[in-house]
Each structure stands twice: as structure tokens, then as C-alpha cells.
Simulated assay, not measured.
Amino acid sequence: MYIPHAFQQNDPNELQRFMEAHSFATLISTNPFMASHLPLTIENGRITGHLAKANPQSTLDGQEVLVVFQGPHAYITPEWYQKTGQVPTWNYTAVHAYGTLQAIREPERISMHLHQLVRQHEHPRDTPWQLDLTEEGLQKMARAIVVFEIPIQKLEGKYKLSQNRKPDEQHRVVEGLEASGSGDVAGLMKKWVL
């Protein structure tokens, strides 16, 4: 990913938090050249997920892959800079994780992944749903998917939030974002730039 110095996010704790908060991500491979959009778990420097066996990416065991996590983003109009000769841009946040995909074949680890994924997404609910499959039902499901993990070998973070603009322009961008309904990006600018 092209990351000008002003937009680099290198704090490993922040990158971990970002991936967890935006865990519906894109798995990209070169052989086959394709992308899949997947719910993932991120823990102890590893990304875990699963693919349908019918997905061509289910054969990626041992191949290097890229996982793209995207956060809030918003259009930035040059009108907010209050200068002539400016062009529109986009403020956004993204993290790229690189690693070698490893298929998980042990039934207990497959079961553990499925339970963890359900817990992760049901946890905020008042009455979380529980994965209540019989062992036979779980094994049937496991035969239809490929569970994988990716030990993270490299992380890149880009928080492009108008860091390259003057403070008065940054304040106007925040005001414009809030007025246009992009308060999430305005909040990120307040946290990381202002």
C-alpha cells in the first residue's frame, strides 16, 4: 500500500484494535487471483476465518495472501479548504495484513473457530445466540468449509485524515464532515489529527 509518511499508522496495539473493530475484511490471493469478503477473528498475531470448500480460495494452503481491513471513509470537498485551485480527495482508514495461509484440519480447532466467531458477533446482544449444533451437525458443516489461519508477518496502517493540511483547514474539514453526516471520520480526525 502506498503510504505517505504523514498518513502512516504504526502502533501495533492500534492496528490490532482496528482489525478487531473492522473484522469483516477482504482476503486477496494471486493464485487464484481473486478476493473473498469474510468475517474474521484476530487474536495473538493470527487471523482466523473460513471459506466454503467450493470457493477457489479454499486451496490456498501454504500461499502468501493479503487481508484488507477498511474503516470509516468520506469524501472531502475542496470547498472546505476555502481556497481556489484545490481538488477533491478522500479521507479513510485501512490496515493491510500479510501472511501465509495455513489450512486447519483438526476437528477440535475447526469447532473452536466456529464457536469463537459466533461468540465474537453475538457478545454485544442482550441474549446472545449459542452455536447449538450436535457433534454430527458440526462435522457436517466442517466438511463444507475450509478453516484457515494466517500468522501475521507484516502489517501496514494508513489513516489518511487530512494530516497534510493546515490546522484551520483541518478544523473546517471536521465541521464539514459533521454537517454532512460523516461524524465517524470527523471523530477520527479529532482523535488522530487535531
Rank of each mutant, 00 (worst) to 15 (best):
4 P>F: 15
143 R>S: 13
97 A>Y: 03
174 V>H: 01
14 E>M: 05
72 P>Q: 00
37 H>F: 12
83 K>A: 14
83 K>P: 01
127 T>P: 02
142 A>S: 12
51 L>H: 02
104 I>W: 03
67 V>L: 06
53 K>C: 13
75 Y>M: 01
155 L>M: 13
158 K>C: 15
17 R>T: 13
137 G>S: 11
80 W>P: 00
85 G>A: 14
62 G>T: 08
85 G>M: 13
166 K>H: 13
53 K>D: 07
151 P>Y: 11
141 M>K: 10
95 V>H: 07
188 L>I: 02
173 V>N: 10
73 H>P: 00
80 W>L: 05
123 H>A: 14
30 T>P: 02
46 R>Y: 04
87 V>T: 12
179 A>H: 04
145 I>E: 03
62 G>F: 02
104 I>D: 00
72 P>T: 01
98 Y>R: 08
106 E>K: 09
189 M>D: 05
165 R>E: 15
179 A>P: 00
159 Y>G: 08
171 H>K: 15
61 D>S: 14
130 Q>C: 06
27 L>T: 05
54 A>Q: 08
42 I>V: 14
109 R>Q: 15
39 P>F: 03
59 T>G: 04
181 G>P: 01
154 K>D: 07
162 S>A: 13
103 A>Y: 02
190 K>V: 06
13 N>G: 07
10 N>G: 14
50 H>T: 03
147 V>W: 02
134 T>S: 15
180 S>H: 02
117 L>D: 00
79 E>W: 01
103 A>Q: 10
77 T>V: 02
34 M>Y: 08
141 M>I: 08
181 G>C: 02
106 E>A: 14
12 P>N: 09
28 I>Y: 12
135 E>M: 09
151 P>H: 09
123 H>D: 11
1 M>A: 15
61 D>N: 15
3 I>Y: 14
22 H>M: 04
16 Q>E: 14
147 V>S: 03
82 Q>P: 02
135 E>K: 15
59 T>L: 07
20 E>C: 06
144 A>H: 11
63 Q>P: 01
158 K>F: 12
86 Q>F: 10
30 T>K: 15
37 H>A: 06
20 E>P: 03
121 H>C: 06
188 L>T: 01
95 V>Q: 05
98 Y>T: 03
61 D>K: 06
112 M>P: 00
61 D>R: 10
173 V>M: 12
167 P>H: 08
113 H>W: 09
91 N>T: 09
2 Y>Q: 13
52 A>F: 05
63 Q>E: 15
148 F>A: 02
97 A>T: 04
150 I>H: 04
88 P>S: 05
165 R>V: 09
191 K>Q: 13
129 W>E: 11
2 Y>L: 15
114 L>K: 05
151 P>I: 04
138 L>G: 12
160 K>N: 11
140 K>L: 12
33 F>N: 11
131 L>S: 09
7 F>R: 10
12 P>G: 08
181 G>Y: 03
25 A>M: 06
129 W>D: 08
102 Q>D: 10
1 M>C: 14
125 R>S: 12
65 V>E: 11
127 T>L: 13
145 I>L: 09
82 Q>G: 00
93 T>V: 05
23 S>I: 00
191 K>H: 14
96 H>S: 08
173 V>S: 08
108 E>P: 01
37 H>E: 08
139 Q>C: 04
67 V>Q: 03
134 T>P: 12
159 Y>I: 02
14 E>Q: 06
